Simulated scan of single mutants.
Amino acid sequence: MALSYKARRRWAMVILVVGLPLYIVAAVTVMTWLDRPPIWLELLVYLALGFVWALPFRFVFRGVGQPDPDAPGDEG
């Protein structure tokens, strides 16, 4: 099922405004459950989690920053 450009823009906004803060809270909560790992390991885990959250949403974010391909263009 392909999403329209406007639907992808709306979902991208919802993911960034609602989903990302929830993911950050969850990641920090999980890290606090661990018994304070070395700083290099903690940094590595945060970097990995920062990259991994966007992988399932690649199709939503792809092309969102581009002009609407279905909008009427300037002709003439």
Rank of each mutant, 00 (worst) to 15 (best):
G73L: 02
A48F: 11
P67M: 00
G73I: 03
D35K: 07
P56I: 12
Y46W: 08
D35R: 05
G76S: 08
F51A: 14
L49H: 02
A12Q: 09
G65M: 01
A71R: 04
L20A: 12
G19N: 09
L44S: 12
L20N: 05
G63C: 04
K6G: 02
Y5L: 07
E75G: 00
M13W: 13
V14R: 14
M31P: 01
L43Q: 06
P21H: 09
L20P: 02
W40C: 06
V17F: 11
P69K: 00
L20T: 08
G63F: 03
F59M: 14
W53V: 09
W40V: 13
D35N: 09
F51C: 14
L20H: 09
A7Q: 12
F51G: 15
D70N: 12
A2P: 10
L49Y: 01
L55H: 13
D70L: 06
F59E: 11
K6W: 03
G73S: 09
P38Y: 03
E75Y: 04
R8S: 06
L49Q: 02
P72N: 02
A7W: 00
L34A: 12
G19F: 07
D68R: 00
W11C: 07
R58Q: 15
Y46R: 05
L22Y: 01
D68H: 00
T32A: 10
